[in-house]
Simulated assay, not measured.
Amino acid sequence: MTAVPTVRTHRLTKQFDNHIAVNHINLQIDRGEVYGLIGPNGAGKTTLIRMLAAAEEPTAGEIYINGARFLRGHNNPELKRQLGYLPDDFPLYDDLTVWDYLDYFARLYFLRDPQRSQRLHEVIELVELQQKRNEVIATLSRGMKQRLSLARSIIHNPTLLLLDEPVSGLDPLARVQVRNIIKSLQQQGMTILISSHILSDLAEICTSIGIMELGRLVESSRLQELYDRSNQDQQQLLISTLGSLEDLQAFLKRSQLVQEVELIAGVPSVRVQFVGSIEECAALLKSLIDAGIPISNFHRTQETLENIFLKLGYKQTS
């Protein structure tokens, strides 16, 4: 029996006056995934997330959460309880303590003691604010406030967490802390949709990627499939030698599968643009060794998510 996806949309559309912000999107996110949503400003990412969070009414189309359909014009309370939503501008109540703030939202979700107190302790530990639980929110750093906002979004233990630019404006350490929280939530079985312009962060935590452009979902696939596809036509090799770089260069240039050989300054290594298969890559390494060239390092490098995004974006707009 096929598992029901956590999110499924059918021809989901949102129009503001004459502007179509989201245009007939068919999206599927399976359970336990971390799905990264990327695209330029104005692509429709926030509008899509707001519709999935029931904060924006679709103009047309359908949304299913864990197989249950959102009904337009209805409150959908049972479905909303399955959602956690962190917009990029959600306000905090600066005069409350960390504990009181989370307790307030736990009560809004009708959590009762002793389960409520237990859940408060769990999320405060998860976001590493144990030492700040009795501190007033106004005294917290930006990173701590963002972790508190994330704790508020999961206080009711949703099955789907929607994060819109959760690391915007955070320093590198704070971004690492948020990434680690997201990884922990995925390990607990939560499905997560996250939009971000920091693609290196998404590459570390996402299982799948969706690319939006002008309101359309122009790409949606597993992250590893994107990497495999980008390396299908051409891949980059880094090769180091204990011997002569000139001999290594000369040997590589005799291969019809090597398109370019570039010396790397300061180290006895070359960067190679290679158009062969994995098997042909292995054969190249064997031929280097058979030729007596002392190879100290030989590995394929993977395209970055940034480069893949730029290539796909160029294809879509060219």
Rank of each mutant, 00 (worst) to 15 (best):
A3C: 11
V4M: 15
V4S: 08
V4Q: 15
V4W: 00
R8P: 00
R11W: 02
D17P: 07
H19R: 12
A21Q: 06
Q28F: 01
V34W: 07
P40Q: 13
G42C: 01
T47N: 13
L52G: 04
P58R: 10
A60E: 15
E62F: 00
N66T: 07
F70R: 13
G73P: 04
P77I: 00
P77M: 11
E78M: 07
Q82Y: 03
G84K: 01
L86Y: 09
P91T: 02
T97W: 15
W99V: 02
W99Q: 14
L102T: 05
R112Y: 11
S117L: 12
L120M: 09
V123K: 08
I124Q: 01
V127Y: 00
E128V: 00
Q131K: 14
Q131C: 04
E135Y: 10
E135I: 00
I137R: 07
T139D: 08
L140P: 11
G143P: 10
S149L: 07
L150Q: 03
I154P: 03
H156C: 04
L160E: 02
L161N: 01
L163C: 09
D164T: 07
E165W: 09
E165N: 08
D171V: 01
R175Q: 15
R175G: 04
Q177T: 10
L185R: 11
L185F: 06
S195L: 02
S196R: 00
S196T: 14
S200Q: 11
A203G: 07
G210W: 02
G210A: 10
M212I: 04
R216F: 00
V218F: 03
S220V: 01
S221M: 11
L223C: 05
E225C: 04
Y227L: 13
D228R: 06
N231V: 05
Q232Y: 08
Q234E: 13
I239G: 06
I239K: 00
I239A: 08
G243T: 06
E246K: 11
A250P: 01
A250N: 14
Q256C: 06
Q259V: 00
E262T: 04
L263P: 06
G266N: 08
V267D: 05
S269D: 11
S269P: 05
V270E: 04
R271A: 09
V272N: 03
F274Y: 09
S277G: 09
E280V: 07
D290K: 15
I295C: 03
R300S: 15
E303Q: 15
E303M: 11
T304S: 15
N307C: 07
I308H: 12
K311A: 11
G313I: 10
Y314I: 06
S318Y: 12
